[in-house]
Computed example of a mutant assay.
Amino acid sequence: MQSSNVSHISNNLAWVLVIAGGIVECFWASGLKYADNLLLYTLTGIGILFSFVCMVLAVKSKLEIGVVYSVFVGIGTVGIALAEIVVFGEPFSLLKIGLIVLLLIGVIGLKLSTNKEENAQEQALAEGFAKDLGLDEIVQKESK
């Protein structure tokens, strides 16, 4: 098996990918609710693809999959909940804000509780997933 250049992505760049993917997730998730024509459905599909490719590349760079996915989904959850309140006029709820804070505490706790053995298993799973999606081949072609 050939080594992929994705594993050479720095941790900082990997976290930028996670954050970018999470932010784009906010837009495509709202797009699922508000899309009503082919252009908006297409943009939603592109957003889904972009955000998940960012997440997969971040995981391939040796970040822990459990933490990456939690942060990715946490950004999406917080972003969508706040956008629904601020942009789309959903009612403000202290309970909703409290649960979002609880989610963020859970993500931080997950990061603090991971261990090396879990990380190795999660990394092997992520590499298999990226290979199945063909991301390894794309990266190898771009690096040539």
Rank of each mutant, 00 (worst) to 15 (best):
L49I: 06
F50G: 10
L40A: 11
E64D: 13
F50R: 08
I65E: 12
I46T: 08
F50N: 10
V59C: 03
V56T: 03
I65A: 15
I46M: 09
L38D: 14
L38F: 12
G45Y: 07
E64S: 14
M55K: 02
Y41H: 13
G66Y: 14
V59G: 01
K60H: 07
Y41M: 10
F50H: 10
L43W: 02
I65D: 10
L38V: 14
V53K: 00
K62T: 15
L43V: 04
V56A: 05
I46Q: 08
G47M: 06
L43N: 03
I65L: 13
C54Q: 05
K62G: 13
V67K: 13
L63F: 13
K60Q: 09
F52S: 01
G45A: 10
K60C: 09
L63G: 11
L49D: 01
L57M: 00
L40P: 09
V59N: 04
G47H: 06
A58E: 00
M55L: 04
V53S: 04
L63W: 10
T42N: 05
G47F: 03
A58K: 02
T44R: 04
F52G: 05
S61D: 08
L40S: 11
L63K: 13
L40T: 13
M55G: 00
V53A: 01
G66A: 11
C54E: 02
V56G: 02
T44M: 05
K60L: 07
I46E: 08
G66D: 15
K62R: 12
V56C: 01
L43E: 01
A58T: 04
G47R: 04
L39Q: 08
E64M: 13
L63C: 11
L38T: 14
I46G: 09
K62L: 15
I46R: 07
E64N: 15
V56F: 03
K62Q: 12
I65C: 15
I48D: 09
G45V: 05
I65H: 14
G66R: 14
K60I: 05
V59P: 03
L49F: 03
G47T: 02
F50C: 10
L57C: 05
Y41Q: 11
S51V: 05
S61I: 06
M55H: 00
M55F: 03
E64Q: 15
T44P: 06
S51G: 05
Y41R: 12
V67A: 13
K62A: 12
L43S: 02
F50M: 08
A58Y: 01
V59Y: 00
I46V: 09
M55I: 01
S51L: 06
S51M: 03
E64H: 15
L38Q: 13
I65W: 11
G47E: 02
L40D: 11
V53N: 00
G66E: 12
G66S: 14
G47C: 02
G45C: 06
C54I: 04
M55Y: 00
K62P: 12
K62C: 15
K62S: 15
F50K: 09
T42I: 03
T42E: 04
G47K: 03
L38I: 15
V59A: 05
I48V: 10
F50V: 11
S61F: 02
L38A: 13
I48T: 10
L49T: 07
I48C: 08
G45E: 08
S61A: 10
L57N: 03
V67M: 14
K62N: 15
F52D: 04
